[in-house]
């Protein structure tokens, strides 16, 4: 029994290490973007995420897109100055990606949004009402999560429809 306990201790240590490593990663976005405020000003999702109707990906806003409205200071928020700094240096805002498909999965926004008529909400939750940038995805996108919906809606469930 004793060796088992030692093993248990080692195992727990390993686990704690990974949990620590895993949870310590809370991606901090470079700009503390307020979805809600933008939404209230009548900014559509597609204004910043320009491609989700036409491409497989949705895209993150370029500095230039921000500057269209924020050229003259609109707020007193310090992050507005940050954007200007990025633009001055000719840099793009280094947004952190939260939603990551595994490498062998083909996912198309266009297929889900433009063809199936789904709303952003169905996968991304009430992101439009959030005041702070999220630090983790709204839902952990497991294959089960995808397939539950596919089964319910009788969408294509061929492996090759998503695995390339």
């Amino acid at each position: 029994m004793k060796p088992f306990l030692i093993g248990l201790a080692i195992g727990t240590a390993i686990l704690l290490f990974f949990i620590n490593f895993g949870s310590s990663f809370r991606p901090e976005q470079p700009i503390s973007f307020n979805h809600k405020k933008h939404h209230e000003q009548g900014v559509e999702c597609a204004t910043c995420h320009s491609y989700f109707k036409e491409q497989t990906f949705s895209g993150m806003p370029k500095t230039a897109a921000c500057m269209e409205c924020h050229k003259d200071s609109l707020t007193k928020h310090p992050d507005e100055e940050k954007i200007k700094q990025f633009q001055k240096n000719g840099e793009e805002i280094p947004w952190k990606r939260l939603y990551q498909q595994p490498d062998d999965v083909f996912f198309s926004h266009r297929r889900h949004v433009a063809l199936a008529g789904m709303e952003c909400k169905s996968c991304h939750g009430d992101i439009g009402q959030s005041e702070k940038p999220p630090t983790k995805p709204w839902v952990k996108m497991t294959m089960k999560w995808c397939m539950d919906c596919h089964t319910k809606t009788k969408a294509n469930n061929d492996c090759l429809a998503c695995h390339v």
Binding site: P102, D104, D158, C159, L160, H163
Partner: peptide, 14 residues
């Protein structure tokens, strides 16, 4: 590995 309805033999690498 399996064949889909259209006859393509595919592999799910994962």
């Amino acid at each position: 590995t399996y064949a889909n309805e259209e006859g393509i033999v595919g592999i799910v690498y994962s």
